[in-house]
């Protein structure tokens, strides 16, 4: 198993490198766009030249990338075009905020998926299944920013239960922090739960038709324990892999929802970078979000290896 983990860790490095290259290319896809964006389209050619020279943008893209990547590895994401402030510390300050939001939203999604999905799978083709499957498709189709708008209208403005947005650090006031995170987590999590509910359901149906389920039933186990002890754990293995992919979609959603709820995380930093035409900021924020996704995928892969004893043997 240790060899397996090592192999997975080794392939992780090239993945990160290629991903960062893709981002770098995406940001610089149009030559000279960075300077044009920073200075505006009416800038004189001399001004553009000076700006490009000042920031090293007149050099070949490969060299720019290597320099950027070399620094980024050490947490140095360069200086902001906008205010010549180092980007790294800003990212570091915002990262926990986004991690908290994504984590809570993922809990909402996975919680809904495991409970509703298992219920639907257990009552395969009966009424609860039909209802839950329809709800799952509904959940998966709601635009998260519209759901957020509706939630704010209902729970913040109409009922006045929760704040409309903003962020309080948990070190300052944990309750206020959690209250502020509830609506964004729901808006983000519910949308992701749509697919996950269906995956969990299919997965559970498959497991429930396995022969060892009948063995367990013949022991006189209750239905609840049958699902919890025998079906759920087996069904979780395929579910985990898909949920890691879905976590990627979910993390992407912070770009929109942090804006809607005025949460100062990495997602809103992406938009700050775009609105201010501040490419070092944009690149840093995008890279951090991508890293969150890649690291989660890695962790889930490793977890799946440990949860399923057969995989250990198959690959050893």
């Amino acid at each position: 198993m240790i060899r397996l983990i090592l192999i997975r860790l080794l392939t992780f490095v090239p993945t990160v490198i290629v991903a960062s290259m893709v981002l770098f290319v995406a940001v610089n896809v149009v030559p000279g766009s960075a300077s044009k964006a920073a200075l505006g389209i009416y800038a004189t050619p001399q001004a553009v030249k000076r700006f490009e020279h000042q920031h090293g943008l007149d050099r070949p893209l490969v060299i720019q990338y290597v320099e950027w990547a070399g620094k980024a590895v050490r947490g140095n994401f360069g200086m902001s075009f906008q205010n010549a402030v180092a980007v790294g510390p800003e990212v570091k300050k915002r990262l926990p905020v986004t991690l908290q939001l994504a984590g809570m939203a993922f809990l909402v999604a996975v919680g809904l998926a495991i409970s509703l999905g298992a219920l639907a799978g257990f009552y395969h083709q009966r009424l609860p299944d039909v209802c839950i499957t329809s709800i799952a498709t509904l959940f998966g189709s709601v635009p998260n920013f519209w759901l957020a708008t509706l939630l704010i209208y209902l729970f913040s403005l109409h009922l006045g239960w929760l704040p409309t947005g903003g962020y309080v650090p948990y070190s300052e006031d944990l309750v206020a922090n959690l209250r502020g995170m509830i609506l964004p987590s729901i808006a983000l999590g519910v949308v992701s739960s749509g697919l996950l509910i269906r995956i969990m359901r299919t997965s559970l149906i498959e497991v429930m038709s396995a022969h060892f389920i009948e063995t367990a039933q013949s022991k006189g186990i209750s239905n609840f324990n049958l699902v919890i002890r025998h079906a759920l754990r087996n069904a979780l293995i395929p579910f985990l892999t898909v949920s890691a992919v879905e976590f990627g979609f979910l993390v992407g959603g912070v770009v929109i929802l942090e804006d809607v709820f005025r949460i100062p995380g990495i997602g809103s930093l992406v938009l700050v970078g775009i609105i201010n035409r501040d490419y070092p900021v944009l690149l840093a924020a995008a890279m951090v979000i991508t890293m969150i996704v890649l690291v989660t995928n890695l962790l889930v892969d490793l977890l799946a290896t440990m949860i399923d004893p057969r995989q250990v043997r198959a690959r050893n």
């Binding site: 991903a19 940001v27 766009s33 992919v245 990627g248 770009v255 775009i274 944009l282 991508t290 890649l294």
Partner: peptide, 24 residues
């Protein structure tokens, strides 16, 4: 396919936002 895998692992909205920012 390795390249496709990596592209696939990007959050779609993030990639779209970045491309829009650089394409205009």
């Amino acid at each position: 396919m390795r390249l496709m895998d990596i592209l696939f692992s990007f959050p779609a909205i993030l990639l779209a936002v970045i491309l829009m920012a650089s394409l205009g």
